[in-house]
């Protein structure tokens, strides 16, 4: 019996092995061919220095050039600063709204308001940005409204500056802040807030000592996502910031598509990837979470 059972058991195990390999194949092809190898190749490309037509050597010139030319590194710093400002503003605007949805209303109205807050983000970023162009442009709604009120007597151009970029970025990021905040505030036990008041705390003390510490994981998660998305955004700065928006992703685009200097573009791409990953990594460390636990 035991001898007869062996081959079939072996066949079963071989079958399991085969199905495991079949299941693994698409995942490995996807990650290998579309993620890992392209990024290794990107790194290799960034270390190539062009000496002449079809003549290359390995070196760090593409990176040293980045630090030598102030226009390059200042753009990256500028992009990072505006992204931080956009993240902070998004948090400030979204937090009271998220708290209102999570704690101040209940039942049907709560669900309705939450869905309503998500609705605009089903529409493409392009359409939302078009709306802001119509509102902010020289002949736009705000300029027209201010003239009508008599506050200004000349049309005022509100596009093509950092404030316009900031408005667009904050707007486009709102969803990614509201959702984690509502989720985390929903899990805050009402009795804790009540206890805070009972113990003599005023609104500000309760906010600082109870609500914000509880909401920290949601705040950090929201901030990471928003910062990452604004840093990598290319559409909003290009349309609202005008021709000289000096956004780092735009420089990568210029290097790759317009100037065809792929080696330099690859170096810039890697620098953006490093800054972006660093922020994600720091955020995860602060909250003591792993990438896997935040996503599932």
């Amino acid at each position: 019996m035991s001898v007869a059972a062996l081959p079939s058991e072996g066949a079963g195990r071989a079958g399991l092995r085969l199905s495991l390999i079949l299941l693994l194949a698409p995942a490995l092809l996807w990650l290998g061919l579309l993620i890992i190898l392209p990024h290794i190749q990107l790194l290799a490309l960034s270390l190539k220095v062009k000496l002449g037509p079809r003549l290359y050597e390995t070196g760090l010139t593409n990176y040293t050039e980045f630090f030598a030319e102030s226009i390059y590194w200042s753009t990256l710093i500028r992009t990072a600063f505006i992204s931080i400002a956009a993240t902070a503003l998004t948090l400030l605007i979204a937090f009271p709204v998220a708290y209102y949805i999570a704690k101040m209303i209940r039942g049907r109205r709560k669900n309705l308001l939450f869905v309503l807050a998500l609705l605009p983000f089903w529409v493409s970023e392009l359409i939302r940005t078009l709306g802001w162009i119509i509102i902010l442009r020289e002949t736009g709604l705000i300029s027209l409204g201010l003239q009508w009120l008599g506050l200004i007597d000349q049309p005022v151009e509100l596009l093509g500056n950092d404030a316009a970029i900031l408005v667009g970025l904050v707007y486009t990021s709102m969803l990614f802040m509201v959702v984690p905040l509502v989720t985390v505030l929903d899990s805050l036990d009402d009795t804790l807030v009540e206890a805070g008041y009972d113990l003599g705390g005023n609104g500000f003390a309760v906010l600082r000592e109870i609500i914000i510490p509880h909401a920290m994981p949601g705040i950090v998660a929201g901030c990471i996502i928003v910062f990452m998305l604004t840093l990598g955004n290319i559409l909003t700065p290009a349309l609202l910031g005008g021709k000289n928006s000096l956004w780092f992703t735009d420089q990568i685009f210029q290097k790759f598509i317009v100037r065809f200097n792929w080696e330099q573009g690859a170096a810039f791409g890697f620098l953006l990837l490093i800054v972006s990953s660093l922020v994600v990594w720091i955020g995860l460390k602060i909250t003591r979470q792993s990438l896997a636990s935040t996503m599932t």
Partner: peptide, 9 residues
């Protein structure tokens, strides 16, 4: 967590 532009290039 990889910016879309980088995935593209």
């Amino acid at each position: 967590v990889i910016p879309g532009v980088i995935l593209g290039v």
